[in-house]
């Protein structure tokens, strides 16, 4: 094995990652992760969008960057598939990942981080680092598109998960942990309440920015799924155009109204 030549196999951190790689070697229905061929400290993963949410049917791919001090310090998670919940290509804020090192525990693992990510997706973004506030429709659309998304190193991400069954049961500690994370998000929402309102207008501009990127990433293929995606795509564009048009009309109406009022005032007071 080339890995044993490259890494100090006696180091507990390396041993731990090898052990985790063995544990996660078989894909499950919900998640799959494995280290890159040439780097034990960078992994790629795929998670399935949680059923019953706007991410249902989506397959999201990303990178996990492990600090040299892992597991003493938390892994960093970066999503690559556009999803409408987290920014892509940016370290995301999860109470168990890199941006909150104080609450990470060495007895958690990459598996814990992935389960937390899945559990965290449907929670409110509320202006936390790397979060996006897309509408449910936009997210559903992105979920459908995500099955065609391809990673340059791993290929089509959705094919990395098994079709059904096979995910190991959660241990008692894991399920209580996942509840903890949801709670944490809740607290964050309350604290950052004042920002939420002001942020309201940004999704439309973000959609505008994201859109060309999303379209580039859809793989041109002849199957019929694609045509439905294209129509949906134009729908999305339409809705953005419509909000822009609405704004323009509002300005015109205000202008006309103020002119009329001005004229009225002139009529009343000066003549």
């Amino acid at each position: 094995m080339s890995l044993s030549a490259k890494y100090n196999m006696k180091s507990p951190g390396v041993k731990r990652l090898m052990r985790e790689a063995m544990e996660l070697a078989n894909p499950t229905e919900e998640y799959y992760a494995c280290p890159l061929d040439d780097n034990l400290f960078e992994w790629h993963f795929t998670v399935r969008g949680p059923p019953g949410t706007e991410f249902e049917g989506g397959c999201y791919h990303g990178r996990i960057l492990l600090p040299s001090q892992y597991p003493m310090q938390p892994p960093n998670i970066i999503l690559l598939t556009p999803n409408g919940r987290f920014e892509v290509n940016k370290k995301i804020c999860l109470s168990i990942s890199g941006h909150h090192p104080e609450s990470w525990q060495p007895s958690w693992s990459i598996r814990t981080a992935l389960l937390a990510l899945i559990a965290f997706m449907p929670t409110s973004a509320a202006g936390t680092i790397g979060s996006l506030d897309y509408t449910a429709e936009e997210r559903q659309l992105l979920a459908r598109k995500s099955t065609n998304w391809e990673c340059a190193t791993c290929g089509r991400a959705s094919e990395r998960l098994t079709a059904a069954g096979g995910s190991p049961e959660l241990t008692q500690e894991e399920s209580s942990l996942l509840k903890q994370i949801a709670l944490k998000a809740e607290e964050d929402t309350n604290r950052k309440e004042p920002n939420v309102e002001q942020k309201e207008d940004s999704p439309s501009s973000q959609t505008n920015r994201e859109n060309p990127e999303i379209r580039q990433r859809v793989i041109p293929s002849t199957n019929d799924v694609d045509s439905s995606l294209n129509t949906a795509d134009s729908l999305l564009q339409d809705s953005v155009d419509r909000t822009n048009k609405d704004k323009m009309w509002a300005v015109v109406i205000w202008l006309l109204l103020s002119i009329i009022i001005l004229l009225l005032i002139r009529r009343l007071f000066f003549l």
Binding site: P12, K15, E23, S107, T171, E173
Partner: peptide
């Protein structure tokens, strides 16, 4: 006591 076997084992072994 409910600790995760997988990770406890890792620390225990070392």
């Amino acid at each position: 006591l409910g600790f995760q076997q997988f990770t406890v084992e890792d620390f225990y072994d070392t």
